[in-house]
Design a protein around this nucleic acid. Structure first.
Lengths: 364, 364
DNA sequence: TTGTAGGCGTTATCAG
DNA sequence: CTGATAACGCCTACAA
């Protein structure tokens, strides 16, 4: 279907300019050099660098001047070694190129900045090993702590989470885990989404979800909410309306929707376990000429930004990302502060709030 | 338009389990401890760690056993300090939550992994200061090198790029810059996109672009390509068809499209400077009941994954992200290898290839 | 094949 | 208010 013409790649190289790359400022300048230039001891420079209070203003200014002149930069590695901290937290997500995780990462970065923490993003590839790798990395003292957006780890892996640095699990809930976690209102949100479809008149509501294994993955948790809502609405649960897909991607979702339409399955509503899935479903239904919301109503979960711009625009459950991100960072920062104070307080769990965002896809 | 109901957030805390968080393995274990346990010198352990060849297999095994038993982890900070390298490159992008940059980041991470490099993602907020910050950070020796996706820096800032670590500029082209860069085929791609619209019968082709300032920003470069195509197709350039938006976001783009429809502007094709913009435009046109591709044809630039799933699906220019990402990392890795060898070879420039991806939005 | 000495650049501690 | 001393944990260079 997609037609392509090609243009050529090209590589150009140019000779080094005569302006020359002379001496680069700031290379290898140490705190010692600054101290010498300012006529003080290295310690004093360090004090200035770290905003210690007991430095005469005049001395401080002399030091700052020397720093500027020499274009001095602290060597972070040395500081990290000495202090045992890096000022960086890790964020492990399945894939940065999925809208939801991209938006989550942005929110976490913003929240971390408020705590003067930097964020390094790891990709776990949505696999158990990837997640374990991320855990290992922070054990290498690369990060002061880790925010882990799990999908691969299950309740069975709780032992592995007993590491010596703070970890906050984000997204799913690992029951009885030994670490803090920030969870989505998975069941409640899914229930609300499904109920919303029922209110809008749907009687045969399908759910498109990932294959459910462990009971703590998104799909299982949201499927549970779906079932509750279906029961409460008195619609009766029909297994044929549960449509499994291999990966929660637009591609798989679109294919599933086409199959649903082709198979003659009767349905007038679809709860998609994720907005990404919903976008795929919208596309799949369009491929078969199924009108949304006329013939079928669709709702997703995550309230991804793109959802406001699809045609029709996508109804969704908003789990308040900013709140989740902020809380995750907050919990981690608190643990970091507790470090060394020997405190070993209770495990904290935060379940975010949710809201139904009704847009065109449910006849909003 | 968007209706909301709310659910409540809740915080649960549980007492610390009696299973206890006893002694955590691996805390503060150093190479010395391992050496002692294995009955060798610390150096031997280091040799094993770094896969040096001259270690007897039996010794190596003894060491590995000790490492496993003590759950030893190298202290990365110490290693970095000693070696002067971090094994991490920085990637500075405007925002991770824009589809294009998320997908770019994923590609870079994959490419870097092939060179055994880790990637730390910085957000510059699409501002000049943000980009300068990223440059400064790597000067702090936090990263071995930096891939910088510029939008804020202009030709005037080339001086600032003369830093002591490798930098590769990605995306736009900074003319005569002293650093390597990987550029998009901006003008050529834009020209091809516009020509594609003309071939499909469009006579009044509009362009939605950011306000053009410096001549090296995406919008200016792509606008230039647009003009060329319009000229070559003999359509005549009409300034009224150049629609400026403040930010290259879906929101601004949708608003612009609505204004275009409302104002009575006559147009039958739209070249959007970016896929994100195009998605917004599709939405804006839908808001006004303008049929795509019936009444107006639309094409974007970037070939973002989402484009295949919009309704109608979005035609675009594919600049081959994987190739660009791979090349950027390749160039950086080469510079890293050259480091210390005193080589100061010519500046390299790579312009990616492009292809037209024709989908429904241009009547594909 | 293994081990010894020394220092990478910084800051905690404590003394002046 | 300022500074001397001593690590932090590892690896390069060389010696045994």
């Amino acid at each position: 279907m997609a037609l392509k013409y090609y243009g050529m790649a090209r590589v150009l190289t140019s000779a080094p300019g005569t302006e020359g790359h002379g001496r680069m400022a700031g290379v290898g300048v140490t705190i010692q050099d600054v101290a010498r230039a300012a006529g003080v001891s290295p310690m004093t420079v360090s004090h200035v660098l770290n905003d210690h209070p007991h430095v005469r203003t005049e001395t401080r200014e002399r030091v700052l001047r020397a720093i500027a002149e020499l274009d001095y930069r602290v060597n972070v590695a040395a500081r990290n070694l000495r202090t045992g901290r890096t000022g960086t937290i890790g964020l492990a997500v399945p894939e940065v190129d999925r809208p939801y995780f991209g938006q989550l990462a942005a929110a976490i970065i913003a929240a971390a900045a408020r705590h003067e923490l930097k964020v390094a993003i790891e990709q776990t590839g949505a696999s158990r090993e990837g997640e374990l790798d991320a855990l290992a990395l922070s054990r290498h003292r690369l990060y002061d702590g880790l925010i882990l957006s799990t999908v691969g780890l299950g309740s069975a892996d709780t032992e592995l989470l007993k590491v010596d640095h703070p970890v906050v699990i984000l997204g799913e809930r690992i029951f009885e885990g030994p670490v803090d976690h920030v969870a989505m209102p998975n069941a409640e949100g899914a229930k609300a989404a499904t109920a919303h479809l029922a209110e809008r008149g749907c009687r045969r509501i399908a759910i498109v979800a990932g294959r459910t294994g462990d009971q703590v993955d998104v799909s299982s948790l949201r499927l549970a909410g779906y079932r509750e809502a279906v029961d409460e609405a008195g619609l009766g649960f029909d297994p044929a309306l549960v449509v499994p897909i291999d990966a929660l991607t637009m591609e798989d979702a679109a294919a599933a929707a086409r199959r649903m339409a082709d198979s003659g399955l009767v349905f007038d509503g679809v709860f998609c376990v994720t907005d990404t899935v919903a976008i795929g479903v919208l596309r799949g239904l369009a491929d078969r000429g199924v009108r949304v919301p006329g013939a079928v109503k669709v709702i997703g979960f995550d309230n991804v930004e793109e959802g406001a711009y699809t045609v029709p625009s996508l109804s969704s459950i908003d789990p308040d990302h900013a709140l989740m991100a902020g809380t995750a960072v907050e919990l981690l920062a608190r643990r970091l502060a507790e470090k060394g104070q020997g405190k070993r307080p209770e495990v904290r769990e935060f379940v975010s709030r949710w809201s139904v965002v009704a847009r065109e896809s449910t006849g909003g």
